[in-house]
Amino acid sequence: MKHFLDWLKQIFSPPLQTDPLLPPLIRSLADTKERELTCDEVHALLDQFAEAVRRGEDAARLMPLIQAHLDMCPDCREEYETLLHMMSVPD
C-alpha cells in the first residue's frame, strides 16, 4: 500500500520548481571573493572611506575591499549612505 502511494506521488508530483533562493544566491556568488572584509573591519574604516569620497578621490579604487563589502552587505551600505548624508550638512 505504501509503495503504491509513493508510486502515485511520483506520477503526480508537480514539475520541479525553481528554488526562489537560487537567482539572488547565484548573483551573490558572482561577486564572492576568497578574501572579503567583515562588517567590523569595514566599520573601522568607514569614516576614512567616506571622507576620501567627499574629497573627490576614487575611494572605490583606492580601497577596493571596502567597496566590495559595501556592494555585498546592505547593512554596511545603508550606514555608509547615511553617514554621507550627515557629512553633507555644513558645520
Partner: peptide
C-alpha cells in the same frame, strides 16, 4: 585617521540604524 566628528557620526549612524532596523 578621519576627522573626529566623522568618527562620532559613524558611531551615531550605527546606533540609529540598528534601532530603526
Amino acid at each position: 585617521r578621519s576627522q573626529f566628528t566623522t568618527w562620532a557620526y559613524k558611531i551615531a549612524v550605527r546606533v540609529a540604524l540598528n534601532e530603526l532596523r
